[in-house]
Design a binder for these strands. Structure first.
Lengths: 147, 147
DNA sequence: AGTGAAAGATCCTTCTT
DNA sequence: AAGAAGGATCTTTCACT
């Protein structure tokens, strides 16, 4: 899918997206224009979706993360989904197959805040909450190799 | 935690981390040096952990995502954790309280690949897998407001 | 696909206020 | 925190392989 060079480029950018074309070029052993062109295509193909910044939840005061499984009561699916989307403390939410409909990540400053947020869903869904104790793998990109 | 200006800066960078100081400056109504200093402090404080690139799993051929709950068999915790960490298709893994020990996200190209990966854990842990049907909330930052 | 050089644009930082 | 200015740095273009 990605050749060796593209892979290197993406890996470097994952580590620091401020890396200049010039630096990238010498890292992969190509010229700046070549790297520029490759980058253009990586974006065009959608491999690189965008340039962002990583924000640290703890530094913002969100000391606690929880993984919440949410099973809306009959007829409440849309209301629940809307509620989740409108609650900014949800930092991620997947709609999945199986008994639980949603799996979501919640950022909160305290157990009280967690309790408060869950209460707001309590009459519309069954929830099951697990507090995050550590992150063996923080969010990372899928493999770039075809391996 | 963050004043209005910092928040704007971070929001803009979340959208496009290539935004120049100059652009940031005029967006928030300050001078470049001021913004530069604010940025320095945001990084120093750890609010901005780094500059990255968002990579698209689908574009890399990983058409399927799954959320896997993993409960290691007695005595197998470390082996399982190591296995997870060394499997690049795991794009995220949290160690959580409760019955299931780990909750992880898996990127796979096919159901066969999913099956294969789960088989490798099968004799060391109980797993429960849910296929992701949609993402009501793709990964996003925690609230920047103190609200 | 890629190179190399060059031009032009842009940017970041420093300094003074 | 502003504003101006200096100097560095980058990105893109173009002709050619």
């Amino acid at each position: 899918m990605l050749d060796e060079t593209d892979r290197e480029i993406v890996e470097i950018l994952l580590r620091d997206s401020r890396t200049s074309l010039k630096e990238l070029a010498q890292a992969v052993g190509l010229s700046s224009p070549s790297v520029s062109e490759r980058l253009r295509r990586l974006e065009e193909r959608g491999v690189i979706r965008g340039f962002t910044v990583e924000v640290d939840a703890k530094a913002l005061g969100f000391a606690i993360q929880a993984i919440v499984r949410i099973k809306p009561l009959p007829g409440k699916l849309h209301v629940v989904q809307k509620l989740i989307e409108e609650t900014p403390q949800f930092g991620e939410c997947d709609k999945v197959t199986g008994d639980d409909c949603f799996v979501a990540r919640l950022y909160v400053r305290s157990i009280e805040e967690l309790d408060g947020l869950l209460d707001r869903i309590a009459d519309k869904a069954e929830t099951s909450t697990a507090i995050v104790k550590s992150q063996p793998i923080p969010r990372r990109a899928p493999p770039l190799q075809s391996s």
